[in-house]
Amino acid sequence: MSLYSQSADNKWTFGLDLASVKYSDADGANLGGSFISQTPRFSLAKYMFSGITFVGSVSTAIGDNQKYTTFDGIARYDFGTSQNNVVPYIFIGGSFIKAASLTPTLDFGAGNTFWFSDKYGLNIQMMYKYSQDKFASQKSHIMPSLGLVYSFKGRSLVPRLWNSNR
């Protein structure tokens, strides 16, 4: 579940994701493994203005031999499609990852929310976390996620073309 896509009338969403961290094989060998499960991942988002939404997320490795907890903050842009049933977006932000030590990263990526009702949607997202080489405790990696989104007030969706009375 992920929290995404709101509008000026409906500002808040909550998300719960299945997420993972994937390092390159070479980096994974140095860090104790190339894959870390990050489930569950919790997110809270607020629509701000003009297609911009601020999102805060947290997830941690549970039952994995590697320690990895991430606190993420991103600004997402939805191309003015926040009232549609399909809402693609791009984003940029940053994270603090607590592994061997606390490491900052620069995050960017893209995603899409598929709203199947006024309150619930399905979100898919791909995030790249860039870590500077000076931080030995962390390497750059990707973090894909898939989850459900809950809209607190409900959304007024633009009707689908095939549901209109034209």
Rank of each mutant, 00 (worst) to 15 (best):
M1S: 12
M1W: 07
M1C: 11
S5K: 12
Q6M: 14
Q6D: 13
A8H: 09
A8S: 14
D9A: 08
F14Q: 02
G15Y: 03
L16Q: 05
L18Q: 06
L18C: 02
V21R: 00
K22P: 00
A26P: 05
D27S: 03
D27N: 02
A29M: 14
N30R: 15
G32D: 11
G32W: 13
G32H: 07
G33I: 11
I36L: 03
S37G: 06
Q38E: 15
Q38D: 06
P40I: 10
F49W: 06
G51K: 08
G51P: 06
T53C: 00
F54T: 03
F54C: 01
F54H: 00
S57Y: 07
S57D: 11
S59T: 09
D64Y: 03
N65H: 12
Q66A: 01
Q66H: 03
K67R: 15
K67L: 05
Y68D: 01
F71N: 03
G73R: 03
R76F: 01
F79C: 07
T81Q: 13
S82T: 05
Q83H: 15
N84E: 09
V87E: 06
F91P: 04
G93R: 04
G93E: 08
K98M: 08
A100F: 15
A100P: 07
L102H: 09
L102E: 11
L102A: 13
D107W: 10
A110Y: 01
F116E: 14
D118S: 15
K119V: 11
L122V: 08
I124C: 07
M127G: 01
Y128H: 02
S131C: 12
D133P: 06
I142K: 05
S145I: 08
L148W: 11
S151M: 04
F152E: 15
G154H: 05
R155H: 12
V158Q: 08
R160D: 12
S164W: 04
